[in-house]
Design a protein around this nucleic acid. Sequence first.
DNA 1: CGCAGAAATGTTATCGATAACATCCGCTTT
DNA 2: AAAGCGGATGTTATCGATAACATTTCTGCG
Lengths: 336, 336
Amino acid sequence: MDKASRSPAMTDVARLAGVSHQTVSRVLNDHPNVKEQTRIRVRAAIAELGYRPNRAARALVTGRSQLIGVVARNSTLYGPASMLTEFEQAAADAGFAVSVGSVRELDRSSISAVVDRHLDQRVAGLVVIANVASAAEALAEIPGDVPVVFIDGDPASGRPLVTVDQVAGARAATRHLLDAGHETVWHVSGPTDWFDSAGRIQGWKQTLLEAGAEVPPLLSADWSAAEGYRTGQMLARMPEVTAIFTANDHLALGILRALHERGRRVPHDVSIVGFDDVPEAAYFIPPLTTVRQAFGDVARAALSLLLGQMRDDAGTAHQIVVPPQLIVRESVSRPA
Amino acid sequence: MDKASRSPAMTDVARLAGVSHQTVSRVLNDHPNVKEQTRIRVRAAIAELGYRPNRAARALVTGRSQLIGVVARNSTLYGPASMLTEFEQAAADAGFAVSVGSVRELDRSSISAVVDRHLDQRVAGLVVIANVASAAEALAEIPGDVPVVFIDGDPASGRPLVTVDQVAGARAATRHLLDAGHETVWHVSGPTDWFDSAGRIQGWKQTLLEAGAEVPPLLSADWSAAEGYRTGQMLARMPEVTAIFTANDHLALGILRALHERGRRVPHDVSIVGFDDVPEAAYFIPPLTTVRQAFGDVARAALSLLLGQMRDDAGTAHQIVVPPQLIVRESVSRPA
DNA sequence: CGCAGAAATGTTATCGATAACATCCGCTTT
DNA sequence: AAAGCGGATGTTATCGATAACATTTCTGCG
């Protein structure tokens, strides 16, 4: 009796329940035409044997697995990393496993390599965290028969997409600084090829123009504290700079340090607003006013779009925009 | 000619190359007994058709997939998140996909649920990032026939394990502070049920005892800047505290802020050393001296242990310890 | 030259599920 | 009561690979 040596298959369940394996399959897939009584009998047999369907076999015959592939840039940046774990959690709750395919760069060849790997695994769907514009062309290659949802991609593509409203977040941040009485607001952006950056730049600029404020030159950086520091060293020497909106919290951290070194106090001399609300932002010196993105909401929205596509093929290609939230702390005050 | 409608299978390749599908299989798996000439012919056919093997079919017959399951706590903490992306990268380079299974807590039922999901997928191996002691019992349940490697687990378990030498890291940090002339060093630890915390506490205490220094009471916190701040508020009021070693950089950040608020200057009045070397640590005020963990090395080591187990069943259960590195910046000086 | 034995290749069975089709059964309907 | 019908179930084919075994084709050597 070494039945335990190999996990039970569908035929084992069928034998125990006194039905054919096909009936077991029907019970598993909730087919309508099964008598309630046999359904119960089969369920009992499944429970007794501790039977769990073999995903590989199912994937082979259906051509689809219970696996969702995620394509993301290899990154420990707060945003992408949070996005990923939130999505994994949402997918797990829905009974899906998540296969992560990191790429070093979001260029054409890297992306198609990862997509191919995922298609090899017969993923049921793909989620692409496409935060830079250069990804667009490679993504056009993804075959149309596999459900795809984009996070942070190009809204103009017409593909199903979930994104945080970067423009609104930037507007709230800029407006907050203007409302405090600053004549204008400087912006240190992320890399300009990121959609996030573009949206934040746009929101910042729009708000200044609407308020009739002068638009200072745009300062671009990568997302690191290091570049924030370098940029900050420059800004610290400019007395006319009294309000800065940075594209993420780590940039703000670097700027805070540069200002500190030059003896410019925050928020007394310079006000600053970040973006992301990383957990430690409340413990910067001073605590950072910033914009929080609801990554969990984005992840769940992306999953539900994906499931929608998987269910009905003619699913309309929705786009969902999640609003961000301004978190007010102590890094902003009226100008001196 | 709608061959493109369905991706080519092994038989298609075989037909084109004028051999049997089995020969194609042999070429794919690098079996020795294939004539060089046919091997080339088959390779050409594969290339021409753009054939890619169906992982599901292979998994079905072998009972093993090209998928590695990772069990980790759902977390955006720098350490675990870095570990995950590094491992994914290493696995991808070796041709493996990674299925992430996050759990909210590392308790028995969560873990066995995730492990079961992975076993459903017929993962080729499992990597468990088991950073708390409570995980140990649940992990004992993992069946012995699937290769498992632990990252950060209990060395005493005897299971294959890769870990950063936390004790050595803590010793370096503590010693650095003592060498600067401080009479003793206070320690703010992470949660005491984490192996990381335990190792760092041990290294800290050992070093103090060896140096004949007094061992101050242990202060425990979670890993957050928030608790660092709270703890820091207390420490800032104690003039005898001149040197602090914190279990991670975010705790240090919170403490820096608390000290700053109380007017205690770092490093002039208080020296501080963190742990992790998060990318922004160099831009704290002041730049933080800290201990860097080579997550990439850990990930690659874990993968190679796993591959070793997958190849030869009798593989000796190695344990690999990766040394950390003290990064000296400006948050430490001689006591006043 | 022929034969053993190895090397190269082909044939068939198999993994565990779903799909498609076949069958059986019990009712209604006329 | 026979035909017709749909609900419930069973049978067989199938997905695409590998494993095990069968067969053919080379070798080397007496």
